[in-house]
Design a protein around this nucleic acid. Structure first.
Lengths: 221, 221
DNA sequence: GCAAAAGTGTTCCAGATACACCCATGT
DNA sequence: ACATGGGTGTATCTGGAACACTTTTGC
């Protein structure tokens, strides 16, 4: 056991991992197998180890519970209400993460019975204060997409301008003018056309583009 | 003593309290009396009690160490590198706070020998990772002043437009056009002139204004 | 040929920028 | 009278918003 001269809280990271499916924003949830909140949906997350920093903990927990790695991850806010966990004092450093929906086959970890993408419009009641975390994350997302290249993180390496526009529309919850959208984004200088077309449906194929810097999120404006 | 089945970190809040003195941004520092970093300057802060939330802790620590209350306070970022404190694992939820310089007579608490406003341009080496905290806080400040009414928090209830302009100039580190500045801020609708003039020096007295909502920081743009 | 999405320019408006002189006061 | 900061208006520029038709493909 580990003993201290005065009470110490437990510290966790919880991660709201977002993706877009069918043009709707989804968040990854786990159904808890263990008490407290057994059977209730919750964000992936877990306790911070004594030798790892907070970002590493968030990455590790995401990988352990879902097998997902290499996604964009950013610290969101720290939630520390005294009674947010019924077991003991637990302070949660919340993160949010973004990933394209492609090639994402969530696999449950050992302590959870179920793992699912859930549309934000159909969010169930969540364990702990995870509902508040998702809400804050969604606000941050909608704000930050407007002054950064965050949106690219929802798409695979190659994408069309229409697909990119759909990302913006889903996150902002509004429809955008096609010509203005394309002009604005091309002027940014963060996109470049690549040789290749996307052929889908009974219509003209679309030019493919790629983000000039796929890994970093640039601040624009 | 308090014992747990697995190691728990200690959690602190640390507060970067900013003010403007002589048109330069200053931060409140304490000189540490105790180890570690005895004699080194540090931010006010301290351990989170088991029954208080994080905001309350930050307010309490600021009051206890400096006697300052009623200032604007906002969570900044959580710093959790494993070795940031040599004693044990300590995770710090950092806050920043703003206050007018008027009527602020910092009084040392019991465990610190000295308490001072230090200009950011003359910042000494700080204890722990407090230098990084101040840096992140300053960036946040410069960003947020541009899309909110944060700047009013640096001024007392009544102020002149020139004084307000000096706040913006100090935080942004740039000089602004007087006519454009006044026009922009008056159009915002967050200021109203009050009866009264500020008479200083050998020149025309200045109209006094007050913020329509002194307590809340509004998001503009 | 028709349905469906891709692709493309111009006009208009509002908000930001640049810029210079007179005013009221204290000494 | 003069030094000092307070106070004011206009022209210009720029980025965002509104808006409709042609192109290419699969069936």
């Amino acid at each position: 056991v580990f003993c201290y001269a005065y009470p110490h809280p437990a510290v966790t990271t919880d991660i709201a991992l977002f993706t877009l499916r069918e043009n709707r924003l989804h968040v990854l949830l786990l159904r808890r197998a263990l008490a407290p909140f057994s059977g209730v949906w919750a964000l992936p997350g877990g306790f911070v180890r004594s030798d790892e920093d907070l970002d590493s903990c968030a990455k590790r927990k995401l990988a352990a519970k879902t097998g997902i790695t290499g996604v964009y991850l950013e610290q969101l806010y720290t939630f520390g209400a005294p009674q947010r966990d019924p077991r003991e004092r637990v302070i949660s450093v919340a993160y949010y993460a973004l990933t394209p929906c492609t090639a994402l086959v969530p696999r449950p970890g050992q302590t959870e019975s179920d793992l699912a993408w859930v549309a934000l419009t159909e969010l169930p009641v969540l364990a702990f204060d995870h509902g508040a975390i998702v809400q804050v994350a969604q606000q941050r997302l909608a704000a930050k997409i407007q002054y950064s290249t965050l949106a690219f993180q929802f798409l695979p390496a190659q994408f069309t301008l229409s697909e990119l526009q759909q990302v913006y529309e889903a996150i902002l919850g509004a429809s955008l003018d096609k010509r203005n959208f394309r002009k604005t984004l091309l002027v940014l200088g963060q996109l470049e056309p690549i040789i290749g077309l996307r052929r889908t449906g009974h219509h003209r194929p679309a030019q493919l583009y790629r983000a000039k810097q796929r890994d970093a999120v640039a601040i624009i404006k």
